[in-house]
């Protein structure tokens, strides 16, 4: 009888699941049966490097920060794609050239928009 060609992968996934889950279960059982829980006011407080904590740990950021995300995409992520594009420029097929052009145009549109909005001016 021959095994299914993917049988080894199933075994691999099984071991990969058991390996991290087993210690977690053991640790949970240890805590459940042997070690008494000792919660406390300071222990449950938000960690602030030893200072008295103010407020909650889960806070929301203001949506105004979207500008930083857009400009980061334009100037940082774009450069990462531009370098391999420039290196492989002469050997590119038409389809790849067009898709990178669409990508560039989308980001340039964002740049024009951000420029027009005055985001690139130095704050006085």
């Amino acid at each position: 009888m021959s095994l299914h060609p993917y049988f080894e992968i199933v075994v691999f996934v099984g071991v990969a699941l058991i390996f991290p889950v087993m210690p977690l279960i053991l640790a949970w059982m240890w805590r459940r049966f042997f070690q008494p829980p000792k919660p406390g006011a300071a222990k449950n407080a938000t960690y602030e490097c030893g200072m008295e904590s103010l407020g909650e740990a889960q806070i929301q950021f203001r949506s105004q920060y979207y500008l930083y995300a857009i400009i980061f995409l334009i100037f940082d992520v774009e450069a990462v794609f531009l370098v391999p594009f420039a290196v492989a420029f002469t050997g590119l097929p038409v389809g790849a050239f067009l898709s990178i052009l669409v990508f560039l145009l989308l980001l340039i549109e964002g740049l024009v928009w951000a420029w027009g909005k005055g985001c690139l001016n130095w704050a006085k």
Binding site: Q35, K38, G40, A42, K43, A45, Y47, C49, G50, M51, E52
Partner: peptide
């Protein structure tokens, strides 16, 4: 000192 004690309190047993 208060910060040290607070950090100690925050460590798990």
């Amino acid at each position: 000192a208060p910060q040290i004690v607070r950090l100690y309190n925050q460590m798990p047993d």
